[in-house]
């Protein structure tokens, strides 16, 4: 399943999605969802996470500081192609 997190850790729905995520689900952090990779890394441990590069960089973080793979929009679409089911 392709799981999109658009809001940061303050949002209860995003926390709910994350709790529901299984090991083979693809989590993508977009917009303020990237803050999960900053302040709540432990919640992402063992999960399959990608971070939208443009949103990460635009919030002032260095590319090398990202603990998860950064993806551009083309790679975002490739991840979506690989996962027919979505939670968003």
């Amino acid at each position: 399943m392709f799981i999109l997190l658009k809001y940061g850790p303050e949002n209860p729905a995003e926390a709910w999605k994350l709790q529901a995520a299984k090991g083979d689900d693809q989590i993508v952090l977009i917009q303020n969802g990237v803050f999960w990779a900053v302040s709540e890394k432990a919640a992402l441990e063992g999960k399959n996470v990608a971070v939208v590069k443009a949103d990460w960089l635009a919030r002032g973080y260095a590319e090398e500081a990202c603990p998860f793979p950064l993806v551009d929009y083309t790679q975002f679409v490739e991840l979506l192609e690989a996962n027919p089911k979505t939670m968003s």
């Binding site: 392709f2 999109l4 658009k6 729905a13 979506l80 192609e81 027919p84 979505t86 968003s88």
Partner: peptide
């Protein structure tokens, strides 16, 4: 749709 995403 083969894929549906919602920006909630």
């Amino acid at each position: 749709s083969d894929r549906f995403i919602n920006l909630m």
